[in-house]
Design a protein around this nucleic acid. Structure first.
Lengths: 196, 196
DNA sequence: AGTATATCATACTGATCGGTATGCTAAACG
DNA sequence: CGTTTAGCATACCGATCAGTATGATATACT
């Protein structure tokens, strides 16, 4: 019973994602959001809780909609190919012409005040999940002979994620897709070869 | 003629650097600064202009005091050693125990609102200067036979800077010195070998 | 129809933002 | 000494921040 909601929460969340990607977490004001969504402040708070809650739900949508390629990438036949798909797929996300450049996760986690410390930690934790997934993939590859036994999966996972972070910063600064492709080209030059 | 200033502007600038490194450009309020410096708002504005002016002067101090190692690093006998000194020296800056972790330049350039767009562009420009210096060093190395002639100096400079950016993000997230050293270890694995 | 309830629009809260006007105080000049 | 001038302290400016109280409106149930 009661009045019907006059907006689509899912559509509104997509708009929030767009705004947050453009302006970052702290750089986005509630007014920015309500204006873009076409709803009022009380409607936003009723539907999504406070700003932090909304950002977390936006993060979920971002991972579900834009970072979902990672799961498939990790299942490539070889780790080397998995890593390459990971990085190339990430470039697609970072330079998607229909979205503001850069990564929602990286842009939010780096700077700004300590009022949003919980958000910073959340983003660091989510990033760590991805790094651990990659490390696990490298470990199974090593066990299966697809990765040298004298190499440390954690070291390589950390390295690959660092490359991703660097590209995310560059993308936020306006780097082109081609530029980033060249970073990946060079980054994969050192991929360890199997002893034979 | 006139009253004497009761604080040391240079010391105040050092404090500003510390605060900006901890909280970022937008995350730092004027009140944060005056409180840490122990001076009043009018004194700050009289001595340093507005927030943007102060941040630029802080950037100058940061480069002069913490990024000065780069110039010496580039003069190492081999490019490969120059790059290694660049990255290891950067780790020292990122994890200096007497300063907040991370890089003033990177933390400021990534996120936050568009009110500080001029600062973002300034930081991107300063970063580009460093990348160009490295590219030039790679070019002279190539001309001198210290770097393969079929490799692109711009590609490698971009790659090295990207590694640096990735490490800066990690450092801001609390990465240890050892972790970052391992990133550099792996990153340099792919350094091109000279034909012989 | 009548009532309960959820959503709407408007306007507001106290806090904080970057930046400044005003008047006081201390030092350098005559 | 007295005037000038620069730095200090206080208190303020309008704007904006995240979040909310209030009352009108529209739907669903009885």
């Amino acid at each position: 019973m009661g009045r019907h909601r006059e907006f689509d929460p899912d559509e509104a969340l997509h708009i929030a994602l767009h705004v947050f990607r453009r302006r970052g977490y702290e750089g986005t004001s509630i007014s920015d959001l309500t204006e873009a969504m076409g709803i009022t402040r009380p409607s936003l708070y009723a539907a999504f809780g406070n700003k932090e809650d909304l950002f977390r739900r936006t993060l979920d949508l971002y991972e579900r909609q834009h970072l979902c390629f990672a799961h498939a990438a990790l299942q490539a036949p070889t780790v080397r190919e998995a890593v390459e798909r990971l990085l190339r797929g990430y470039i697609d996300v970072l330079t998607d012409p229909t979205s503001p450049p850069g990564c929602l996760g990286v842009n939010g986690a780096v700077a700004c005040s300590e009022a949003s410390e919980p958000i910073r930690e959340e983003l660091i934790a989510r990033r760590m999940v991805n790094e651990n997934n990659l490390r696990d993939r490298l470990e199974t590859a090593r066990a299966g002979g697809d990765f040298p036994s004298d190499e440390d999966p954690a070291d390589w996972a950390r390295y690959v994620v660092s490359i991703g972070l660097g590209m995310a910063v560059r993308a936020a600064s306006g780097a082109s897709r081609e530029e980033l492709q060249r970073v990946v080209d060079v980054a994969l030059r050192g991929w360890p070869t199997l002893p034979r």
